[in-house]
Design a protein around this nucleic acid. Structure first.
Lengths: 195, 195
DNA sequence: CACCCATAGGTACGGCCGTACACATGTAAT
DNA sequence: ATTACATGTGTACGGCCGTACCTATGGGTG
């Protein structure tokens, strides 16, 4: 479907996009911003690049976001919420600690999403959070949700250690580009869980 | 009378640095660049900012570094080497696995690995590495050295898991800003090394 | 229908950026 | 002492940036 389909009577003027009345443009811009961050880092993210990637005029950026900070905050909030949602769901589907262990192993070793994209954005988020308190509310909420999800199956201290192990193994996998051996990961998780 | 002749006898003229012949300027610039990255992120790092922080003229940047990429690469290489040196040394000083465990606990809960400056730069490095293969050689070398250091005391698989746990716990500590309880950390490390 | 204003679109301005480059100067070799 | 070269310094240029601001438009409401 082309942009001109809605334009039944008059025909499409040459070179003129027909995007008037685009109700979830702001939502779409946040998603596109996240993709741009993943590809170019925060350092390479600009209003112009996001606008171009979303096929939207530059002015739309300043209309929907008060400034660069608001755009970044919205994008990273979405990243954290999506990741926490996925983790929550995995933990909720597990009915026993044994199933939870298997779910965790699957998350670490599996290829749930384009690992690369999410990882780049995640590290950018950590770096920003370490520097700016208002961003830290995002990471704090994310960490709290992860721990709560784990505490459905494990003791608080165990949940904390598991969370750290997951984080570390994910980093190793992302940076080494090699798949983590399932047996090794399962062994590690089981050692932490064993009490 | 030229400004330089005026100060011949008196020493430092007002407003004029006497920095000609500064043999380790390049080394100093790398350190300063790392500090700037830690404070402003890669996104906020520029030749001008580094030059100002090092009290060096802008032209000195392009003289000592072929471009921004070379500066970043040099800075992150230094970061990785310093961190790996510290970890190596801690592992070498431990004579038994038990001492090694205590050394690891000390690193995680202590102040050595957790300088905010180092953490911010580390996440920026990870993000860059996930995006650019030539930067990944830095992280690969770092990871390899860490694992080799751990393998002085533990089995390869155990070393891998320990490395991941250390990474994850360090992140947690850095983002939560709260000190990690020593007993919890020791418990986690001991569970991983227990065979 | 007529109106209004939330949304869309275009453009200009001042600023910081990387980089190039011409020039200055100190050092070491002859 | 002269020279050659490595290093240091200042400045200018073109480009991308965030943002402000003005205009256009069309959907919902009376």
């Amino acid at each position: 479907m082309t942009p001109s389909s809605a334009n039944a009577a008059t025909g499409t003027p040459p070179g003129h996009r027909q995007r008037r009345h685009d109700p979830d443009r702001r939502e779409r811009l946040i998603d596109v911003a996240l993709a741009v961050i993943a590809e170019h880092g925060v350092a390479g993210t600009s209003h112009r690049r996001v606008a171009a990637a979303a096929e939207v005029p530059l002015g739309s950026m300043t209309y929907h976001f008060a400034g660069m900070d608001e755009l970044l905050e919205a994008a990273f909030t979405r990243l954290a919420e999506h990741a926490a949602d996925a983790f929550d769901q995995a933990m909720m589907q597990a009915r026993t600690p044994v199933e939870a262990v298997e779910a965790i192993v699957g998350l670490i070793t599996g290829t749930v999403l384009n690992r690369r994209e999410a990882m780049v954005a995640t590290y950018e988020l950590y770096s920003l959070a370490a520097r700016r308190p208002e961003i830290r509310t995002i990471t704090n909420a994310w960490m709290a949700r992860s721990r709560r999800a784990l505490e459905r199956h494990f003791e608080p201290d165990t949940a904390l250690m598991l969370d750290a192990l997951i984080e570390g193994l994910t980093i190793h996998r992302a940076l080494s580009l090699k798949p983590m051996p399932v047996s090794t990961v399962r062994e590690a998780v089981q050692r932490i869980v064993a009490s």
